[in-house]
């Protein structure tokens, strides 16, 4: 009703937001997007440390190529139970 009277105004901010979401997600996942690996590693380390006390170098994060797919390879070395109990 009001739109009819005053003319519809397009919400360009929401168009901007949608476009940014798509392009940024795409750019983060591209080759340069590997930039997130050190951060991912650090955050994983912090989360795991809430439950198990592990060394800073116990978490390894890598991307491996297998055929057409990229595989995110995460390995976590847990501390030796007996060593930590002693």
């Amino acid at each position: 009703m009001f739109d009819f009277l005053f003319g519809t105004k397009k919400n360009t901010a929401s168009i901007a937001k949608d476009r940014l979401r798509i392009i940024i997600a795409q750019e983060r996942s591209l080759a340069g997007g590997r930039d997130y690996l050190p951060l991912l590693r650090q955050e994983l380390l912090e989360v795991i440390r809430k439950y198990v006390n592990i060394d800073a170098d116990a978490v390894k994060v890598d991307v491996a190529k297998e055929g057409e797919h990229d595989i995110l390879d995460i390995s976590v070395t847990l501390p030796d139970e007996r060593a930590s109990a002693a």
Binding site: L20, E27, G33, D35, Y36, P38, L39, R41, Q42
Partner: peptide, 27 residues
Amino acid sequence: EVSSVRDSDRILGLLASKTRRAEAGER
């Protein structure tokens, strides 16, 4: 504004990888 936001994301990627802290596994 769109171009500034996109460029900022690029910078955030570099901050998370190409800094002394990132190289030491910190942020």
